[in-house]
Structures are given as structure tokens and as C-alpha cells.
Amino acid sequence: MNLEYLQAFYTTVKFNSISKAAKHLHVTQPGLSMQLRNLEKDLKVKLLTRSNKGVELTEEGSVVFDYASTMLSIQGNIQRDLKNLKDNSPKLIIGSCKSVGEYALPCSVYTFKKTYTELDIQLEVNNSSEIIKKLRDHTINIGIIQYFDRLDDLELNTIVTDELVLVGNSKVLKNTITLDEFKKLPLILREKNSGTRHLIEDFLKNKDLDINDLNIIYDLNSPQAIKSSIISGKGYSLLPKLTIVQELKEKTLKTVSVENFSTFFNYYITYRKNYDLTEYEKMFIDFIISSKRGFC
């Protein structure tokens, strides 16, 4: 599989626009469209359909998008590690859950880098359970996660409080629904073991409900893929408010209140209790929990 084509597809979905993706990748729109067609030809499936609201993932496209995220991350890690062998500049590797890492954190990294220009900053984005695993495996030393149980071996510092909200597309008519109505909605949720899924399960437990009581039509491991599905009218989802700021401004997504539903939670920056932080890691932790962080 051609990774250049895969990158073109992944970026198009992320930007929900061929023109914006082409600009980001520094290619022409016809050139990007050809790369997308070539990927579909290689895989023998249709991945995207175009609409006046951007691009829409097909069912096959959703599957490929999930794998693309992983494959491109591995490619980036290979390039990073080979570069590190040749480069003696100081390094800061940050692991982050997707809710923060894909939306809010890039602006913070940019701001921090402007102060510490000599620093090589690398951001690894995954779900919270994988970030915790990487911390315990000593693959990374600091991470940003949603709260999980049984973290006695990790230090936790609160960054910001967020809220889990029910969202549908702009055509949704109701502003408020009952819990019984919520249980019948076609839901597209984050994958098992993600921080968001963990929060949903905890909420349901407090209501004497189980995840199997919901009408889940499928799971995706990408907030962006979930949002694309919702915008195209495939269903609803429960997402952190931090991840839908832009869509709410553009009115492509709409929040729906669920009676007696209130799920606030914290994001934390975390590291192993027995680990001695480097000076740059200490400075980044102080920066990210301060008002200077400048989330996007």
C-alpha cells in the first residue's frame, strides 16, 4: 500500500475538505484527488463521497481510516527514532489522549517550542489506556490522559475540566431528550478501553444501566471519524466538548441535552511516581497546567 496515498486520505478526512487538505499537503487539488482515486483503486473499495459539507466516509472508509492512523503513526515513529540517532538536540516526548492531542494540544506545543527553540518536541497521540501502557513500559515519560481507575503508580496533575456531551448533526430538531429516548438513539462511540468509553460506562453504572442497554451501531477509534459520521447523518455520539469546539462554531454539529445527564471530568498530565523528570519535562508540566498553555 502506498503510504503517500494513505496520508492523502487521512489528511482529507481530518480537514473534511479536499481543498484544505491539498493546501496542507502542498499539492494541487487534482493531484490530491488522483491520489485518493489511486488508493480506492488499490483497495478496490470506495472510501469517500463528496457533499456540500465536505467529505463523508463510507463504511469501508471508516475501517481504512482507523488503520491509517496507526500505520502513519508507526511511520512517524520510525522516522523520529532514526533522526534521534543522528541528532543530539534535547528532546521532549509527550504522549496524549486523542481528545486533547488531536485538537487542543498542538497550539500549546507550538507556544512552548517558541520559548525553547533548541528543543525537539515529539507528540504521540493514542487513547488513554495506550498512553498509560506506554508510561508503564517506559516508552514515554509524560502523558496526558482522561481519568482511569487504578493509577496508584502514576502522579496526576489536573490540566482542565471538560464535559461529555451528546451531539448530532445540524438537522437535529430536539434540544432535550429523556434518558429512555437517549437509549434508543443510533450511537457511534469511541472504542473499548478509550478514556471516553470509560467515562460513558461509569455514567451508565451510576444510572443502573449497562453499555449493552444502548443502541450502539459501531465503534471508531478516531474522534474525527466519529464527527464525520455524525455530520453526514449516520447517528449520534457522546464526545468531550473540547473536541467539537470548531464544529459548534460552524454549526455542523449540535449538542442535545439528556435529562439528568451530567458528566464532567478532568484531563491530567501524568508520569511515573518513581521517575525523575528532566528539566524540560518539569517546565512543560508547569506550562501545561498554567493559563499560558493556549489550547487551540
Rank of each mutant, 00 (worst) to 15 (best):
Ser73Tyr: 10
Gln7Thr: 11
Leu3Thr: 13
Asp152Trp: 06
Ser170Met: 13
Leu3Ser: 13
Leu238Asn: 01
Ile289Gln: 07
Thr263Pro: 02
Lys192Val: 09
Gln246Phe: 13
Thr270Glu: 06
Ala68Tyr: 08
Asp42Ala: 07
Ile288Pro: 01
Ser62Asn: 05
Leu48Lys: 06
Ile244Tyr: 03
Glu181Arg: 04
Leu32Met: 13
Gly76Arg: 09
Leu135His: 02
Val55Glu: 00
Ser232Lys: 02
Ile211Thr: 11
Asp210Val: 07
Asp210Phe: 07
Leu82Met: 11
Thr115Pro: 02
Phe284Trp: 01
Asp208His: 15
Val45Thr: 07
His198Met: 15
Lys273Ser: 14
Val45Met: 04
Arg80Glu: 12
Tyr218Gly: 02
Leu85Phe: 10
Glu102Ile: 06
Ser108Asn: 03
Gln146Tyr: 10
Leu47Gln: 04
Asp213Cys: 08
His138Pro: 03
Pro106Asn: 03
Ile211Cys: 09
Ala21Val: 13
Leu135Arg: 03
Ser69Arg: 10
Lys171Arg: 14
Glu201Trp: 13
Gly143Tyr: 00
Pro223Phe: 01
Ile142Asn: 00
Asp180Lys: 11
Tyr236Trp: 00
Leu239His: 02
Glu155Arg: 13
Val165Tyr: 12
Lys234Met: 12
Glu201Phe: 11
Ala68Ile: 11
Leu214Ile: 06
Met1Thr: 13
Asp286Asn: 14
Asn127Ser: 11
Arg50Pro: 03
Asp202Thr: 09
Tyr236Leu: 01
Asp153Trp: 08
Ser17Asn: 11
Gln79Gly: 05
Lys234Ser: 10
Asn266Tyr: 11
Asp180Ile: 11
Asp87Trp: 02
Arg190Met: 15
Glu281Thr: 01
Ser69Val: 05
Asn206Val: 07
Ser170Pro: 08
Thr243Glu: 13
Ala22Met: 04
Glu60Cys: 07
Ile230Leu: 03
Leu239Ala: 05
Ile142His: 01
Ile144Ser: 02
Leu82Lys: 11
Asp162Met: 06
Val13Thr: 02
Asn77Gln: 14
Leu85Cys: 14
